[in-house]
Design a protein around this nucleic acid. Structure first.
Length: 262
DNA sequence: AGGTATGTTAATTG
DNA sequence: GCAATTAACATACC
């Protein structure tokens, strides 16, 4: 379930489990996921190294290797990390890449759909530039946010989901942010007044920070979040109206027609 | 069996 | 050049 909050949870998980252990080997089950490298290249780059630190930018997770290079992980539409012991335990289903440490433990990159990406880069910044990503959604002040809004011609939903403008927000959290900001998904950005842009900024921060705090687990989200109600027959957690869906920004958007009137 | 899916990119169309 | 839409990618699930 990978948008910014999910990736932040994975980052903390990697921090808590996998740092400072000598890497024995890496097994690439799905070589097509490697973008700028090969299984051999990856093996040479990580062998006998340790993961020393982590970083996140939008939906990209970085693990800094001793020696200076960085391992990059992107999880596509599905995917997660799983750390597990050696011995009898076998790799989780859909493990596409497996890092084995010298203590016998393993870090699995699991991705049922193989839409993710694994790569090596010299720095997180170089990946951000190569992919022309916008600033991370949680590393963006009001002023910068306002400047990004200016000059946008499309709809709010497509704007906040555009990784080249703001990195980290996907379909689910854009719905949540627009719901909390009480904005109709297809509202043109150019129509928003100063107050609405600020409301959107505040909702973005609040939603993302709160979701991280909830471990990106829908069951632990605040009671007034739309997130667990994105399905036909559900009701708005704020006003009780039936929620609706529509196509917007090329995806299925869920919203409350009463709280988010056009 | 067919439709849908938390992402990204390329191609197409306006 | 922009923006919106659609297809493609690879696969699972309902």
């Amino acid at each position: 379930m990978p948008e910014l909050p999910d990736i932040e949870v994975y980052r903390r998980y990697l921090d808590a489990t996998s740092l400072h252990q000598r890497i024995e080997r890496v097994h690439v089950e799905s070589p097509a996921l490697l973008k700028g490298t090969t299984p051999q290249g990856l093996g040479r780059a990580v062998h006998a190294k340790t993961l020393e630190t982590t970083h996140r930018h939008g939906k990209y997770l970085f693990a800094g290797l001793s020696g200076g290079r960085w391992l990059v992980l992107h999880f596509g539409m599905s995917g997660e990390l799983r750390y597990f012991g050696g011995g009898e335990e076998q790799s989780p289903d859909y493990t596409r890449c497996l890092v084995t440490f010298d203590n016998g433990f393993n870090l699995a990159y699991v991705a049922p759909r193989k839409l993710g990406l694994i790569d090596l880069v010299d720095s997180p910044q170089s990946l951000v530039e190569e992919r022309t990503l916008g600033p991370d959604a949680l590393d963006l002040d009001q002023q910068a946010f306002r400047e990004l809004a200016g000059g946008r011609r499309g709809t709010v939903k497509s704007w906040i989901m555009d990784q080249h403008s703001i990195a980290g927000i996907g379909n689910i959290y854009s719905d949540e942010i627009l719901f909390q900001a009480k904005l109709y998904p297809r509202r043109p950005v150019a129509d928003l007044d100063e107050a609405a842009v600020m409301r959107l900024y505040d909702a973005m921060r609040r939603v993302l920070e709160r979701a991280v705090k909830a471990g990106a687990d829908p069951r632990r989200m605040p009671a007034d979040f739309l997130l667990p109600h994105r399905e036909a027959g559900s009701r708005c957690p704020k006003c009780g109206s039936p929620v609706k869906s529509m196509q917007a920004a090329g995806r299925t958007a869920w919203y409350c027609p009463r709280c988010q009137a056009a």
